[in-house]
Write a protein that binds this DNA or RNA. Structure first.
Lengths: 325, 325
DNA sequence: CCATTGTTGGAATCTTATCCCAACAATCCG
DNA sequence: CGGATTGTTGGGATAAGATTCCAACAATGG
């Protein structure tokens, strides 16, 4: 069918000839190449890199010869890229960026750093839990470093599978396929309201009990918003929405302005809603208790630092359970 | 605030010392380094790379000296990585992978290829439109190549912003911020049913008209499912769901088995539902007409091949409008 | 049509990686 | 316990390759 016929991303093995070609690439050449592209002028590029122009010329020509391609259109007024040159330029840039990362990271080690962990996490974890957890982790392990990137849950799983990072944190509902998964945190939704709201005296709430009042919605793509819509549907009722706003903080401000009830995670309320004189009442419905999980490719083969981080993250919730309430 | 205190991903400029260190990295050293890591043994690594063991030893020692780090724990029975070594190993691997890509891509050019475009697209576009559109594009331009990766709409936007690819295709509802956006396709939802269904004679349908019949739902996280739930809520009704299934093809099979009505994109029906003797009736509601858009960073600065692809994709819908029906 | 700008070629030089051989350290095992 | 084995490191000679300088060359632009 059509999908199979697309000539895209075929991960074929490198032929022997290509293996040999790989060795003809070197970083100096790539560096000079991007310099020439930047300057569109071989002479200026040579100047910038502190080398003779003829040496740059030779390197570029040798490279073109080795691969049998033309990288530049030699114009009277400098050099312009061919399509092959553009393709190379992109890869050369990311390669050099990577090399820079190597230099930076290793010089951190030379200054005393003892370990790195690469992590991926979804927004919910990054906003609610990781600031506190990582701060505490760093306090206990000053000489460790973390590279953290934000991605949606599905992409977190993909990244861990591909080895882009060692440890991932994502929604427990995401399919983590062959990865090992551990519980990280429960994420309790709370109903946020002013102290003078009719429901303000309650200890717990069912979502359906809130449907007789106005609501403030999160943006329409958020999972909380979608899930609460679904719950209302299941109950055969409709949410009365006064407005949709983009962030947890905005929800709290709207609540304060007496626009209605808000529905946000408890930890988010602790961070953005504190000191606003609002009341946050936990939701009793089971879908109000969402779970974040930790995913790794193989816990037994984690780096030392990765192992340390994994153990720390797995233990952190129970250590603080009193404060999470 | 907690977020600011995390010591993560600080993109500081490289110091002059680090710039100098960058030049001490070279690909041969990296290649030898991963060989040593793979083999956990310097001698075998040297053998594998066809070079004298002492040469490898020298390179490793010089490298360690240059960066002031220890990469290996020299054990009697070979070499084991230190944390610094592990950090280097990861970056070395991706760097070498990149270099391999350079070699592969350039040798394609040497064999006649005339241009590359890197693209990102969401699943919807990849399943429904790109197979056909790209096939047609390749038919017209044999010597061009496309690198296509699947990502959710939000990540498509991010990837284009970061320059990971030139052209992105995502939902029109995704926020494309500063990117240039162009219309790509309308994605019309159709109600799928057996020929003997009471509604089978209709030309068009409002979603509310279908709510008196059983439905087959897509998986609960799909945007079609969520959107239809929402529409039911807005109408003050409830969808009567017989079952939730994971894919467009499964929906069609369930419809055929007389389980109820299905709601899927028209193009998906054309691909998976053809020849099943089913009827597909367009939805009249405005949310039944979803849009896919093309995003680029700067259409004026696209590569030649990128420009060609953009123009092609922008024109393709109207060229085929008769067939899209 | 000559001056200017910019790229390329060649020969000499110099740097530097590699090789080979030997030394050395640490286990293994009889 | 001690020689054999396995594996890493050091030094000097060699060989390979990159850089420099200078000159030639091509193509605009006034």
């Amino acid at each position: 069918m059509p999908l199979a016929s697309i000539d895209v991303d075929i991960p074929r093995a490198a032929t022997p000839a290509e293996t040999a070609l790989t060795r003809r690439v070197d970083l100096t050449t790539l560096r000079l190449f991007v310099a020439v592209c930047d300057e569109q002028n071989l002479t200026r590029a040579a100047l910038r890199e502190g080398i003779a122009a003829s040496a740059v010329s030779k390197r570029m020509n040798d490279f073109e010869l080795a691969f049998g391609v033309t990288l530049f259109k030699r114009l009277a007024k400098g050099m312009a890229l061919t399509p092959a040159g553009e393709a190379l330029l992109h890869h050369a840039r990311v390669t050099l960026l990577n090399v820079e990362k190597i230099a930076v990271e290793l010089s951190e080690y030379s200054q005393g750093v003892r370990g790195h962990v690469r992590m991926l996490a979804n927004l919910s974890a990054i906003v609610q839990y990781l600031p506190e957890d990582l701060s505490a982790f760093f306090a206990a392990h000053e000489l460790l470093r973390v590279d953290l990137q934000e991605r949606p849950s599905g992409q977190v799983v993909r990244g861990i599978e591909e080895g882009a990072a060692e440890i991932g944190i994502c929604s427990a509902e995401a399919d983590s396929r062959a990865l090992e998964a551990f519980h990280y945190r429960y994420d309790n939704l709370v109903v946020v309201m002013r102290g003078d709201h009719p429901l303000a005296g309650r200890e717990k709430l069912l979502f359906t009990e809130t449907l007789d009042f106005d609501h403030i919605g999160l943006h329409t793509a958020s999972s909380i918003y979608l899930r609460s819509q679904y719950a209302a549907t299941q109950a055969g009722k409709t949410m009365r929405l006064r407005i949709n706003v983009p962030g947890f903080d905005a929800v709290c401000r709207m609540v304060q302005a007496n626009m209605g009830l808000g529905l946000i995670p408890d930890r988010a309320f602790a961070v953005v809603g504190a000191g606003m004189g609002l009341r946050a009442i936990p939701l009793r419905d089971d879908w109000g208790r969402r779970e974040l999980k930790i995913v790794v490719r193989d816990a037994a083969r984690l780096s030392g630092t990765g192992r340390l981080m994994l153990d720390y993250l797995r233990a952190v919730e129970t250590d603080r359970v009193g404060r999470v309430g």
